[in-house]
Amino acid sequence: MEPILEIRNVNSFYRIGGSAFSKGRTVQVLKNINLTLYQGEVLGLVGESGSGKSTLAKSILGMTEYEGEIIHHSRRPQMVFQDPYSSLNPAFSIRRIVEEPLIIYGKYNGAERRQRVEEMLAAVGLGPEFHDRKPRELSGGQRQRVSIAAAMIVRPRLVILDEAVSALDVTIQDQILDLLMKLRREYDLTYLFISHDLNVIYQCCDRVIVMKKGEILEENTVDGLFENPRHEYTRQLLRAAE
């Protein structure tokens, strides 16, 4: 198996209270993270709220300060952010938001781009009536599907999905998970799949890591995690999900 992402001894920090004259101080959130993602796998990431899951995702994309090594073997990894509203440009139409990554990518002409955007939006269940709207004119779940469409349209080899289906009702969630898994098979994509829904994790992932207080507590295959959880916290999580 080919590694697509290697994380070596990573400690991540946020800087708070800085200004033009002082650097402020830093708080450490991730402690000594070691992790390898392999090409084509779906790696689940679960753990307590505030344990550092989104921080790990942001560090991978270079959005936090960190020490240690993060080695990418793919270009342009994409991310679906936990809070779709603040990651979508409020001034752009839905059509434009989904087209934007393709414009940056620069490989297609206008007509090709428009066709791809139509197809992608249809695949996430957003018909033409939504394409000219602004993000604030959509429901929460509709906005979440716009961020999924914008991330997937360039067929990135690595995608980080941060609670990407959590605002969707189960019927739409079912459709979106099928879409993600189909794209993964067709294009051999790799997902880092953050979710608090253990049943969704079970259905979609090959391996799972469990985080608590900024550390990785357990790394296991998905079957191993559910049948023989190694850590007491994992057992606690599984019990609460009964």
């Binding site: 606690q236 999580l237 999900a241």
Partner: peptide, 13 residues
Amino acid sequence: DEPTTALDVTVQE
């Protein structure tokens, strides 16, 4: 309105 969507099961409880 969807107050527990981002919460792990133990906190949700």
